[in-house]
């Protein structure tokens, strides 16, 4: 049975990338603990609107942990702390206690400028993807799907890498603002599949170069990214990317 909790929420307000930004604070009363974190913010916004104030802006969409849109830094952890790894939208108020102070911040990273409040611009991820995150194949009549045999183990591992939702939690958690986990997950997916091999070298180089160009930091293997990844991507992907990248560079 749901119980109600009361707590203080501190949320980040920032009017565009140039604004310095500040916290605002509000007491929340009797919130049922089976509401999701975002539903709690809906309640907050409803209260603000009823008082004639501007609501708190944040990104969210599917609310079932798959679109990767939600992006809040909650009490010092991207997406808040959950046991199994989940996105902000899959965080429920039962993880909090009466009297807590909950601090909500945006992803803070130079490559993700704030648009408003906790809504940030992650279009850099799209640009990295555009640099090489694909298998170049024409729409039309490729060979029969079963003509390419892929061992189950490889397919499963590629699937694990492909599970990345591009939310940017890895960048948000990284003290270097590095996007290596994101990039390596995409590179890994294709590196593990025969379809991806022909362009593997080009892909690794192009995506890494684009990542550097866009101002993401370098990987120093702190593992903060994998600790917060809602889809449990691992730094084994990063090792694979390094492997692919070195191989590509040495072959030049």
């Amino acid at each position: 049975m749901a119980k109600n909790i009361s707590f203080t929420i501190k949320y980040w307000k920032q009017n565009g990338p140039k604004d310095a930004g500040h916290f605002e604070q509000r007491e929340m009363h009797n919130i049922p603990d089976d509401t999701s974190f975002l539903e709690m913010l809906d309640i907050l916004n409803e209260e603000l609107i009823n008082e004639g104030k501007e609501p708190f802006t944040f990104d969210h969409d599917c609310r079932e942990g798959i679109c990767g849109m939600c992006s809040l830094y909650i009490n010092g952890t991207p997406h808040g702390k959950t046991a199994t790894g989940a996105t902000t939208c899959q965080l429920y108020m039962r993880k909090f206690n009466d009297g807590d102070v909950i601090t909500v911040e945006p992803w803070r990273s130079a490559a993700f400028p704030v648009i408003k409040d906790c809504m940030v611009d992650r279009s850099a991820f799209d640009k990295i993807q555009a640099a090489g995150g694909y298998v170049t194949v024409r729409t039309g009549q490729p060979q029969d799907a079963n003509a390419i045999l892929i061992p189950k183990q490889d397919a499963d591992e590629a699937m694990d890498c492909a599970t990345c939702i591009g939310c940017g939690a890895c960048v948000a958690a990284c003290k270097n603002g590095s996007a290596m986990l994101y990039v390596s997950s995409k590179v890994s997916q294709f590196a593990l599949l025969p379809q991806g091999r022909p362009e593997a070298a080009k892909r690794a180089k192009a995506m890494v170069a684009k990542m550097d160009e866009l101002g993401f930091g370098n990987c120093t293997n702190t593992r903060a990214c994998e600790a917060v990844c809602p889809k449990n991507e691992t730094i084994a992907n990063i090792a694979r990317l390094n492997r692919e990248f070195l191989k590509a560079k040495l072959a030049d």
Binding site: R108, S109, A110, F112, S178, G217, N218
Partner: peptide, 8 residues
């Protein structure tokens, strides 16, 4: 570089 990437 990393400090810069981390942002202000």
């Amino acid at each position: 570089q990393n400090r810069k990437a981390r942002g202000a």
